[in-house]
C-alpha cells in the first residue's frame, strides 16, 4: 500500500452533505474485476451529462480543480454501500485526502486500506477550509499526518484526531493481512478453544 506522510495540494470544495457511494461511483462501474481505472468515472453522474459530455459547473471539471488532491465535503461523507470502488475511484482520480465533519463508517475504514487519509474536523473548521478551497488553485492546503494537522493556505492550523493504529499503518504503507498473519498463533488458539465451546459453528 502507498505510504501517506505529508501532502500539499489543491483542495476542491464540495459543500454537500450525505455524499453517498452511489454518487462517488455509480453501480455501472462496479462490474470491473480490477481496482484501477475508476478515476474517470469518479462522481460520474454529477460530472458528465447524458451524452457523456463534461458538465462545466461540476467542481472537478473546473480548470482550477482538475488536479485537486484534497476534497473538502459536507457531513456524513461516503454513506451508503460498502463498495471499495469508492475509495479506488477517488484515489485513481488523484485525491489522497478527504476532509469532512463526519464520515460513514465503512467508507472511512476503506480509505485507510487504500492510502487515502479521511480527516474529520468540527463543522466550523470544515467551514473555514471550505472557504479556503473555494479560492481555487492558488490556495494550497497542507496535510501532515505525523503532526495530525491541516494547514490552510493562510497558515491557519487545525489539529485532527485519528486512531493510532490506522495512523501507523498509513504512514508506513503497511499491509494489514501481513500484520495479522504475524498473530497467527493467537488465531489458532482462539479457533481451537471456540471449536470446543461452540462446536456447531
Amino acid at each position: 500500500m502507498d505510504k501517506f506522510t505529508t501532502l500539499t495540494g489543491i483542495a476542491a470544495p464540495m459543500p454537500l452533505i450525505n455524499v453517498d457511494t452511489d454518487m462517488i461511483i455509480p453501480k455501472q462501474f462496479l462490474k470491473t474485476i480490477k481496482r484501477s481505472g475508476l478515476g474517470v468515472n469518479l462522481f460520474d453522474e454529477m460530472r458528465y451529462d447524458d451524452d457523456g459530455k463534461e458538465i462545466p459547473d461540476f467542481v472537478l471539471n473546473k480548470a482550477q480543480y482538475r488536479d485537486a488532491e484534497i476534497l473538502v465535503a459536507g457531513d456524513n461523507f461516503g454513506c451508503g454501500s460498502s463498495r471499495e470502488h469508492a475509495p479506488w475511484a477517488i484515489k485513481d482520480f488523484g485525491i489522497r485526502c478527504v476532509i469532512a465533519p463526519s464520515f460513514a463508517d465503512i467508507f472511512y475504514n476503506n480509505c485507510f486500506k487504500n492510502g487515502i487519509l479521511p480527516i474529520a474536523l468540527p463543522q466550523e473548521q470544515v467551514d473555514v477550509l471550505m472557504k479556503d478551497a473555494e479560492k481555487g488553485s492558488n490556495a494550497r492546503m497542507m496535510v501532515d499526518l505525523e503532526a495530525q494537522t491541516v494547514t490552510s493556505s493562510d497558515g491557519e492550523v487545525f489539529h485532527f484526531e485519528l486512531d493510532s493504529f490506522k495512523k501507523h499503518c498509513l504512514m508506513n504503507g503497511l499491509d494489514d493481512i501481513g500484520l495479522t498473519m504475524e498473530k497467527a498463533a493467537s488465531i489458532d488458539s482462539f479457533e481451537a478453544a471456540a471449536a470446543q465451546a461452540r462446536p456447531w459453528v
Binding site: 463498495r83 465503512i106 476503506n110 487504500n114 495479522t180
Partner: peptide, 13 residues
C-alpha cells in the same frame, strides 16, 4: 458490512 480489502483480510485470516 465490509470493504473488499477486508473481504481479502477475512478470507486470508
Amino acid at each position: 458490512g465490509i470493504g473488499t480489502s477486508e473481504v481479502e483480510h477475512v478470507l486470508a485470516t
